[in-house]
């Protein structure tokens, strides 16, 4: 399971109330609002804890999400693009988060750059559906994945710091 810090962060993300996926025309807009509320709260919490690490935005109907996530390692900031589609079976199944630019660099990834989550994630999501939302996906899925994979990729020289990316000393 996740470490204490992740657990604490997750417990602070508000749970969602509306059980609706993108095919549910009447209720999906409601769910989408809740998703944004939870995401805003989560990002604000991260900022307060001096641990701001991702941004996300969606298309108008909330089915396609894109954004960036970043990871600080040895005072350098490594930034990656991220994307995912909300599957028709959401929120019973979690979206598959992809970090396309890391495709082919790590074995912990499926084709297309979809990150390979630990075997803990699916049961955790299933037990908390439909109350978990995209903010939980970030906190329990992408966050721990980056924390394990990025330092490893840097040490192997597969990810190098790009000039022009913002330094942490700002």
């Amino acid at each position: 399971m996740a470490d204490d810090a992740t657990r604490r962060a997750v417990s602070q993300i508000p749970l969602l109330k509306t059980h609706a996926g993108p095919r549910d025309r009447s209720l999906w807009p409601l769910r989408l609002k809740e998703e944004y509320q939870a995401l805003i709260k989560f990002v604000e919490q991260n900022k307060e804890a001096d641990n701001d690490w991702f941004r996300l935005e969606s298309n108008a109907d909330g089915t396609r999400w894109t954004g960036t996530c970043w990871f600080i390692h040895d005072l350098l900031r490594y930034e990656f693009r991220l994307e995912f589609d909300v599957p028709v079976t959401y929120p019973d199944t979690a979206p598959e988060v992809a970090v396309p630019e890391l495709d082919g660099k790590t074995a912990k990834m499926y084709r297309g750059g979809k990150i390979c989550l630990t075997e803990h994630f699916a049961p955790l999501w299933a037990r908390n559906a439909p109350r978990f939302g995209l903010a939980h996906l970030m906190a329990l899925g992408l966050g721990p994945w980056l924390a394990v994979e990025v330092p490893d990729l840097i040490s192997k020289g597969l990810v190098v710091h790009k000039e022009g990316q913002r330094e942490t000393a700002e």
Partner: peptide, 14 residues
């Protein structure tokens, strides 16, 4: 645990 609060904001505003 806490759930999302009722909001007056529209989706576009959020």
């Amino acid at each position: 645990g806490e759930t999302v609060e009722e909001t007056e904001q529209s989706l576009e505003e959020l």
